[in-house]
Amino acid sequence: MPAFTFEKISPPVRRAPAATLPKKPRGLISQMIDRFVERRARRALQRERAIRRDEKPAE
């Protein structure tokens, strides 16, 4: 006969979902990079539109 026994302990029940944690604000460097990328994407889109206009055959 064993001298002691192990008791199963269930994990604690979560009361609130994990999504309620506040988001950490983005860093200044990340914001600056986002601005540069957005401007570069806009310029590329404008150039692509200009190229497409030039490629259309005249009717």
Rank of each mutant, 00 (worst) to 15 (best):
I33Q: 08
R43L: 11
D54R: 15
I9P: 00
Q31N: 09
R52K: 15
S10K: 09
R40G: 11
I51H: 10
V37W: 03
A3M: 15
R40F: 06
L21A: 13
L21M: 13
A19P: 02
E7Q: 10
E38W: 06
A41Y: 05
A58F: 14
E55K: 11
R42D: 05
E7K: 02
M32C: 04
V37Q: 05
R47Q: 09
M32W: 10
Q46G: 15
E38K: 06
A58L: 08
K24W: 01
G27Q: 00
K24H: 07
A44L: 12
A3E: 14
A44I: 05
R39L: 01
A41M: 10
P22R: 01
A19Q: 13
P2Y: 06
G27T: 07
M1C: 14
R35D: 07
T5V: 07
R15K: 13
R15H: 08
E55T: 14
E59T: 09
R47P: 00
Q31A: 06
P25N: 01
A58H: 12
F6E: 06
D54P: 02
V37A: 08
R52T: 14
R15S: 08
G27H: 04
S10D: 15
L21V: 13
R42S: 00
L45Y: 12
E59V: 10
R26Y: 06
R47C: 10
M32E: 06
I51G: 08
R53D: 14
R14Q: 11
R39Y: 07
K8E: 12
I33W: 10
P25I: 01
D34E: 12
A58M: 07
P57F: 03
F36K: 05
K23M: 00
F6V: 01
A58Y: 12
K56I: 08
A50Q: 09
L45E: 13
M1A: 15
E55I: 09
A3Q: 15
P17M: 02
I51L: 11
S10C: 09
E7W: 03
A58D: 08
K8T: 03
R40L: 14
R40S: 06
K8L: 04
E7L: 01
E55H: 09
L28I: 11
A18W: 06
I29G: 11
K24G: 00
L21F: 11
R53P: 02
Q46E: 13
F4L: 07
F4D: 10
R14E: 10
P12L: 04
I33G: 03
L45R: 15
R53N: 14
E7C: 02
P2W: 07
A44Q: 11
K23Y: 02
P22A: 01
I29T: 03
A58R: 09
A50Y: 07
R53G: 14
R42Y: 05
E7H: 03
R49D: 13
R40N: 02
P12I: 02
S10W: 15
D34Q: 08
I33M: 13
M32P: 00
E48W: 14
R39S: 05
R47K: 04
R39P: 00
K24V: 07
R35N: 06
R26G: 05
E59K: 11
P17S: 03
R35T: 07
P17R: 05
